[in-house]
Design a protein around this nucleic acid. Structure first.
Lengths: 148, 148
DNA sequence: GCACAATAAATGTATATACATGTATGTAAA
DNA sequence: TTTACATACATGTATATACATTTATTGTGC
């Protein structure tokens, strides 16, 4: 469905403004889709992203700012997301011996197992962009360029 | 900057997956930019969207679900956003005489003035996609198609 | 007319973001 | 060495989203 129909309006200042709303709306749809795929696991997309980042760096433990730098939302919320994951025994947290200000975060075996199951569910159930490889490539180019 | 650099990773399942993360990251950047432009007014992007929708339909009052249907996030949060706008005397809310379940929402003169000032600030200060008209058009086509 | 389902909105709870602030630790300059 | 500043993280508050539930009203079938 076209963005005009989705937002029930045709009032866009220009093609760029329309594209801005289109990006935000499409992001919302994607987020909803991932959230739905993760719901049976009781994990939010943000918590899943943290687990995926930790799983991808299983060898070396990461500190909070390393995780934040790899997330879509560079929020100050990572400590609280880690609180919830720690409560579920999916991650471990310890003080860094080299720098006492840093926390070293690792994924637990339970976390690894869960993240693998969740990734399977997301790949199977979440919305995949209905684009050819070539279209997706063009989209990536345009988005990278759009951020200026 | 390319999305690989932004998220400090090259691990994408495919070009579509990469584009999904790219869309969500770009949406986040745009949202931040609008939020920053609105900050001096003490209004959030979501509150601004509601005001813009009401301002665009100044003639006929809208009910809550009309507003929700025009928003990017079709959340159940509209009543609470309206609470905040009503507290600031930017919108009015009354029971519909035709259907007692509905609220009729209108924008106040104070709201109209504010939304016009804010629109000016957003157009001046918020990030505009660094794309040509033709590129923005292609981006819109790809996004519309991507949602399937 | 009345019981029951559907609809519109509001509300409660958990989690997330934004921003300001607090606390501990590290680093560098006086 | 002591003071000042910076860094990393944690925390508090306001606002937002997701989802379930509640309340009020409307519409429908009997």
């Amino acid at each position: 469905m076209k963005i005009e129909q989705e937002l029930q309006t045709g009032k866009f200042r220009n093609e760029q403004h329309k594209a801005s709303l289109n990006i935000m709306f499409t992001a919302y749809v994607l987020h909803r889709s991932v959230a739905a795929a993760l719901k049976p696991f009781g994990i939010t997309p943000e918590q899943y992203n943290v687990l995926r980042i930790l799983n991808g760096k299983r060898a070396d433990k990461l500190c909070v700012k390393d995780i934040a730098g790899r997330m879509i939302e560079r929020s100050s919320n990572v400590p609280r997301i880690l609180d919830r994951l720690e409560n579920k025994a999916l991650v471990s947290r310890e003080r860094s011996p080299e720098d006492g200000r840093e926390s070293l975060i690792g994924i637990t075996p339970k976390g690894i197992e869960l993240v693998e199951n969740m990734t399977e569910a997301v790949e199977k159930n979440a919305h995949v962009l209905a684009l050819t490889d070539s279209e997706a490539w063009t989209l990536n180019e345009l988005l990278d360029k759009s951020r200026g």
